[in-house]
Computed example of a mutant assay.
Amino acid sequence: MTKKQNKNTPMLFLFRVVQGAFIGLGAVLPGISGGVLSVIFGIYKPIMELLSNPFKNFKTHVPPLIPVFIGGAVGFLGIANLLAFFLNKYPDPSVCLFIGLISGMLPSLFREAREEGVAKGSYVSLVVCMIVIFALLGGLNMASVEIEANFISYLFCGFCLALSVIAPGMSFSTLLMPLGLYTPFVDGIGHLDFQVLIPGGIGALVTVICLAKAVNALFDHFYSLAFHGIIGIVIAATVMIIPFSSFTASVTGCIVNIICLVVGVIAALLLDKFNSRVEVK
């Protein structure tokens, strides 16, 4: 570790806590994906490596990820309630802020996707994944089926929660809201209801055990194809949450949304610049 990195270690710890808080927020807030934000912040791959081989990678991966886990817990259980208020009170500007954040990080995603070169078919992977997510999320938005909240349905909720981390763009809120499971699941987590936490935890654990190794192996052998596919997922998931109607509803609302978009993009570029200066490779 360089002298500059030593000087920045406390700042890096705080920065990772903030990143974790955003990931926790993205996991619980409607339309946002914690997996997308973990990709954007450049910590998706180490998280997947830890989940796929927890015993082997514990000593090397857990210490630098501790602040991310701390921030994630704070964001998921604490700050989410505050930002949920803003999403309920000012839904469109809040979502536009997140859209700006994600959009501003796309250049860094493409940089990371090209780290090991651009394999043949990478952009085909990007387009195919984008189309699949458009079709999946579009179908869920049009569905009107509701499922009774019980042990089995909370197992499914845990599956969706883990999937939103393993598969960036798969916001568990987007998957659960059309089924009427989002509110009872989040309320149960917020109130530490073990009738929700136990089946949800089991579903999430089984999903991680079954899918994490496969996803990590995909990155090891097809890095460019996999990462470009994720970028396609990120783009499609972001487009799906754009509040198009609010831009034409009123001039004031349009201006506010544009300001929030610009602020999000600028914040993302600043975060990327800061991250490139203090990140420990």
Score class of each variant (00 low, 15 high):
Pro67Thr: 04
Arg16Val: 13
Ile235Thr: 11
Ala135Gly: 09
Gly100Ile: 11
Met11Thr: 09
Ser224Trp: 00
Val118Gln: 07
Val280Ile: 09
Ile202Met: 09
Val278Phe: 11
Lys56His: 03
Gln195Tyr: 14
Ile230Ser: 05
Asn257Ile: 12
Ile70Ser: 02
Cys157Asp: 04
Pro199Ile: 04
Phe274Ser: 15
Tyr182Gly: 05
Gly31Phe: 02
Val256His: 03
Asn275Glu: 03
Glu146Lys: 11
Phe227Trp: 06
Ala135Glu: 10
Ile198Lys: 02
Lys56Gln: 06
Lys273Asp: 10
Phe227Gln: 10
Phe274Glu: 15
Gln5Trp: 10
Phe185His: 05
Ser153Cys: 13
Leu205Phe: 11
Leu176Tyr: 05
Glu49Lys: 07
Met130Gly: 10
Phe13Arg: 07
Ala268Asp: 04
Ile131Thr: 11
Thr2Pro: 00
Ala237Asp: 08
Lys7Trp: 08
Phe194Glu: 09
Arg277Ile: 09
Thr183Asn: 09
Gly190Ser: 08
Gly188Arg: 06
Val68Ala: 01
Val262Cys: 03
Tyr44Arg: 08
Val36Pro: 07
Ile99Trp: 14
Pro178Gln: 15
Ile70Lys: 02
Val62Asp: 03
Asn6Pro: 02
Pro63Lys: 00
Phe219Gln: 00
Val263Ser: 01
Leu176Gly: 02
Phe134Trp: 08
Phe13Leu: 14
Val186Cys: 05
Gly200Ile: 10
Tyr223His: 10
Ala119Lys: 12
Glu112Thr: 14
Ile189Ser: 02
Val68Trp: 00
Ala267Leu: 11
Gly34Phe: 04
Lys213Asp: 14
Asn6Cys: 06
Gly31Ile: 03
Asn275Ser: 06
Ala73Gly: 15
Phe244Pro: 00
Val145Ile: 08
Gly24Ser: 03
Phe172Ala: 11
Leu106Gly: 15
Cys96Trp: 01
Cys157Leu: 12
Val165Ile: 09
Phe151Gln: 15
Asp187Tyr: 08
Ala143Thr: 07
Cys160Ala: 10
Gly190Pro: 01
Ser164Met: 06
Gly121Asn: 04
Ser153Met: 15
Met142Gln: 12
Ala27Phe: 08
Ile66Leu: 10
Ser173Glu: 13
Gly35Asn: 10
Pro10Gln: 05
Pro184Tyr: 05
Lys281Leu: 13
Ile23Thr: 08
Pro10Met: 14
Asn275Tyr: 15
Ala149Glu: 01
Thr252Asn: 13
Asn53Trp: 05
Met1Phe: 13
Ala135Lys: 09
Gly100Glu: 14
Ile255Leu: 06
Asn150Ala: 04
Thr207Cys: 15
Asn216Cys: 13
Gly104Ala: 00
Ser224Gly: 02
Glu148Met: 07
Val186Ile: 12
Phe134Asn: 00
Gly42Gln: 01
Val68Tyr: 01
Leu126Tyr: 11
Val239Tyr: 03
Ser250Thr: 12
